[in-house]
Simulated assay, not measured.
Amino acid sequence: MIALLLSLAAMQTAPAVPPMVVIDESDRMRDEPPPHGRIGMSTAWRITDGVPGRTMEFRRRTLHRGAAIGVHPIDHDEVYYVLSGRGEVTSDGRTAILTPGMAAYLYRGAVVGIRQQGDEPLALVISYPLAKPAS
């Protein structure tokens, strides 16, 4: 009974999280240099920014010709999924070519990056967990 009362009290004081958040990516679009080295230019859609209580990041980024997300260590697992274009992904010194429909699953502790290749921009979805839930 005490546990039930404590659970009810916690539910009443916890901030309400909506059952769903619908995001229009056009509201989250901006042109900026890519992270981790500012190599070239990109268009970024920080899709989940501002979502209350989120535990993951979900982003879209298009690397313009010659652009790259520079090599950097990650402290979480991360996924790069290619929508269009061609890219070269690096993880701990190993490289692989990614084309549309391919994903690279990158592991916590690795040193990773991705570079656009060819004539077409490289369009990606990038997703990873947050260290702690967003407020």
Score class of each variant (00 low, 15 high):
2 I>M: 09
2 I>D: 13
3 A>N: 15
3 A>T: 14
3 A>C: 13
3 A>W: 11
5 L>V: 10
6 L>F: 15
6 L>N: 13
7 S>T: 02
7 S>K: 14
7 S>H: 13
9 A>K: 08
10 A>T: 07
11 M>K: 11
11 M>Y: 01
11 M>W: 03
12 Q>T: 11
12 Q>N: 05
12 Q>S: 12
13 T>N: 02
13 T>D: 03
13 T>F: 10
15 P>T: 12
15 P>L: 10
19 P>A: 10
20 M>T: 05
20 M>N: 07
20 M>W: 06
20 M>P: 00
20 M>H: 10
21 V>M: 09
22 V>W: 10
24 D>G: 02
24 D>N: 12
25 E>K: 15
26 S>I: 14
27 D>H: 12
32 E>N: 14
36 H>T: 13
40 G>S: 10
42 S>F: 08
42 S>N: 05
44 A>M: 01
45 W>T: 00
45 W>A: 02
47 I>S: 00
48 T>M: 06
48 T>H: 03
50 G>S: 09
50 G>A: 11
50 G>V: 13
50 G>Y: 02
52 P>F: 07
52 P>Q: 08
54 R>M: 13
54 R>I: 06
54 R>S: 15
55 T>R: 15
55 T>Q: 14
55 T>F: 13
55 T>E: 15
56 M>Y: 11
56 M>H: 11
58 F>R: 03
59 R>W: 07
60 R>H: 10
61 R>V: 13
61 R>T: 13
64 H>C: 12
67 A>C: 13
69 I>P: 06
70 G>H: 10
71 V>G: 02
71 V>W: 10
74 I>E: 08
76 H>P: 11
77 D>E: 11
77 D>Y: 00
79 V>C: 12
79 V>G: 00
80 Y>K: 06
82 V>H: 03
83 L>S: 09
84 S>I: 04
85 G>Y: 04
90 T>Q: 01
91 S>F: 04
92 D>T: 07
93 G>I: 07
95 T>Y: 11
96 A>H: 10
98 L>D: 02
98 L>V: 05
100 P>K: 01
106 L>C: 00
107 Y>W: 14
108 R>P: 02
108 R>L: 14
109 G>F: 09
110 A>T: 08
113 G>N: 03
113 G>T: 00
117 Q>R: 11
118 G>Q: 04
121 P>T: 02
124 L>P: 01
125 V>E: 03
125 V>P: 05
126 I>G: 02
126 I>E: 09
126 I>M: 11
127 S>M: 05
128 Y>A: 10
128 Y>C: 01
133 P>G: 05
133 P>I: 05
134 A>E: 09
135 S>F: 10
135 S>I: 11
